[in-house]
Computed example of a mutant assay.
Amino acid sequence: MGILQLFGKLANGAYVAAWDTSLTLANTLSSSRKPGQVTPAGCPGAGGQWPEYISPKEGDSRCSCPALNALANHGIIPRDGKNIKFTELGERIRETYNFGGTFCYFVPNHAAGLLNKNYATDTFDLAEIDLHNGIEHDASLLREDSALVPDQSKPHIPFIRELLDSATGKDANGKPILTIEDISRFSAKRRVEARETNPDFTLDRAHKTFGSTNASTLLVAFGGRVDDLETFLIEERFPEGWESRILSPMGMTFITFNITILKVERGIDEDKYIAERKAAAEANVEAS
Rank of each mutant, 00 (worst) to 15 (best):
Y15V: 09
Y15N: 11
Y15Q: 14
T24H: 12
L25C: 13
L25P: 10
N27V: 10
S32R: 15
P40R: 03
A46N: 05
G48S: 08
E52V: 02
P56W: 02
P56I: 00
S64F: 07
S64Y: 08
C65N: 15
C65W: 10
P66Q: 08
A70C: 13
L71M: 02
A72K: 01
G75M: 01
I77R: 00
P78W: 00
D80F: 04
L89H: 04
G90M: 01
R94G: 15
R94F: 13
F99K: 08
T102W: 04
T102S: 15
F103K: 14
F103I: 14
Y105N: 10
F106Y: 11
N109H: 11
N116C: 13
N118C: 11
Y119E: 02
T123K: 14
F124E: 01
F124G: 03
E128T: 00
E128F: 00
I129K: 08
N133C: 14
G134H: 10
I135L: 14
E144G: 09
D145C: 13
V149K: 06
Q152C: 06
S153H: 11
P155S: 05
I157G: 03
I157V: 11
A167H: 03
A167D: 05
G174T: 07
K175L: 13
I177P: 05
I180C: 11
I180R: 15
I183A: 04
F186A: 08
S187H: 08
A188K: 11
K189H: 07
K189M: 10
R190Y: 14
E193L: 15
E193T: 15
E196V: 15
E196D: 14
P199F: 09
L203C: 05
L203H: 05
T209W: 15
G211D: 06
S212W: 12
N214Y: 09
L219S: 02
V220E: 12
F222S: 05
F222E: 02
R225G: 02
D227T: 03
D228Y: 02
F232L: 04
L233C: 01
I234Q: 07
R237F: 06
W242H: 05
S248Q: 13
P249Y: 04
G251S: 09
T253M: 01
F254A: 00
F254E: 00
I259Q: 12
I261V: 12
K263V: 09
V264F: 02
Y273Q: 04
A275R: 12
R277S: 12
